[in-house]
């Protein structure tokens, strides 16, 4: 009873009912659950590029975002670049933070936990010996990634920890950073 009444009052702005309904509907229609996400990245100049994100496929058909979004990526002056945007790896970190934060909001709402503020501080360590080709034993990617959540919510520390744990368990970006994926690259 307690959980039910909490669920009815917490409002984190997540339409949990719609998500639960979608889960029910898709569990009967596995083909509709097959999505393809896209980005088109166009080189600008130097190490500056601009990605445009608009269309995606899912629920059996093509869809479009409300509008086309663009994300610029570049490198800072320390890399002798013009700094027209964050580095690609920083965009990846922001993707992880966003994915986990949205998971926290959804899981908290589903559990009847009212959030007041949530901030994920995401850090990735990198040894440039990798991308610069100085040492073949050093990987290009992050050697460690840390996420520190600051959460203000109507819940105990354990309840908040459980929400954060569940958000990792159900996070697409957490999965694709922690697990290998096959990537095929072709040239048309």
């Amino acid at each position: 009873m307690n959980v039910q009444s909490k669920a009815n009052t917490a409002n984190n702005g997540v339409n949990v009912q719609a998500l639960l309904d979608a889960r029910d509907a898709l569990s009967q229609a596995p083909a509709a659950a097959q999505f393809t996400w896209r980005a088109a990245t166009e080189w600008q100049n130097g190490v500056h590029s601009r990605s445009t994100i608009e269309g995606f496929f899912g629920l059996g058909e093509e869809h479009k975002h409300r509008k086309a979004f663009t994300i610029d990526a570049d490198h800072p002056a320390e890399f002798a670049a013009s700094d027209n945007g964050p580095t690609p790896v920083e965009i990846v970190l922001s993707g992880l933070g966003s994915c986990l934060a949205s998971g926290v909001a959804s899981v908290a709402q589903n559990r009847g936990i009212q959030l007041r503020s949530v901030t994920a501080f995401v850090e990735g360590d990198m040894d440039l010996y990798g991308i610069l080709g100085i040492d073949a034993d050093v990987r290009n990617g992050f050697t460690a990634i840390r996420v520190r959540f600051e959460v203000d919510a109507d819940a105990t520390d354990d309840e908040i920890a459980a929400v954060v744990a569940q958000s990792q368990k159900r996070s697409a970006v957490f999965d694709l950073i922690t697990n290998p994926s096959n990537v095929s690259v072709s040239v048309a």
């Binding site: 920890a161 459980a162 744990a165 569940q166 368990k169 957490f174 290998p180």
Partner: peptide, 24 residues
């Protein structure tokens, strides 16, 4: 365990979370 490539086995970076979740 997340995959095998050329007889190298790969493990997920999620160990901390699965342990934290199990403890909770």
């Amino acid at each position: 365990m997340a995959g095998v490539r050329d007889n190298t086995v790969m493990f997920s970076g999620s160990l901390a979370n699965v342990c934290a979740a199990a403890d909770l």
